[in-house]
Amino acid sequence: MRDGRVNRPRVGRARLLGALTAALLGGTTLAAHAQVAAPVDFSGTWKIAKPRTSILPDDDAIPFTASGRNQYKTYRSKRAKNDLEFDQTASRCSAPGVPRVMLTPMRFRIFQDPQVMTIAFEWNHVRRVIGMPGHPPQISLFGAAEDAKLVGTKMGTSRAQWRGNTLVVETKELSDTTLLDDFVPHGFELKLTERLSLIAPDTLEDRITIEDPETFTRPWETAVTYTRQPDAIFREDVCLDRVFGKPTLPTK
């Protein structure tokens, strides 16, 4: 329950779709959804090839609208005064959002199956969830999907399609409280299109197209590359402990 309202799962449409699917399949239990073959397996541990904190090497190349540029300058000014309230990731360890999370200097691990790709980041153990072509109809639990349409989430709503050997991931419904990097703002209409491909067996490229008419005059693009790392279970990283110190919890 939130705000005094009783939340109920929104199931009608999804269940109807599921039942229809089952009827069309004549009772087949699995999963036309799960049968979509993946041409490439990105699973594994990766790390950004050249650590960076900005989405482009030169911020002047970003095609800001007037309001977008004003906001950008405001954030620069605030950071110069060590006022970080505009940046919830720096000030309180909130999830960085996309594409900023793809710039983290620590490792991440991609878990891929025909239905869901989950990218688990070593940084504060945040993660992205990407609906793959094989994912079945979903129900909205406690109104989460409806809330995302209204105000977004930090990591957005991501759906992927294969184009040859490239996985094209479209992400929308990103909270406008996140940033594209340490300074670059965006609005709620932000749409990201990422093209993930292996440009070498151990090199992953993410080409990102950024569209947001409120903040940018035209779509623009950046690219990030990652190198494959040995498999490992990441050490626990707790951002709040790093930023605020260890909490008052009993240790015996």
């Binding site: 970080l84 309230e85 999830a95 869901v116 969830v129 079945p136 129900i139």
Partner: peptide, 18 residues
């Protein structure tokens, strides 16, 4: 399987203040 896309819960956003 109808709950495959695990919802986000950004706990830190909800901690009182900066």
């Amino acid at each position: 399987p109808d709950l495959a896309l695990v919802d986000e819960f950004d706990c830190e956003t909800q901690v009182g203040s900066s």
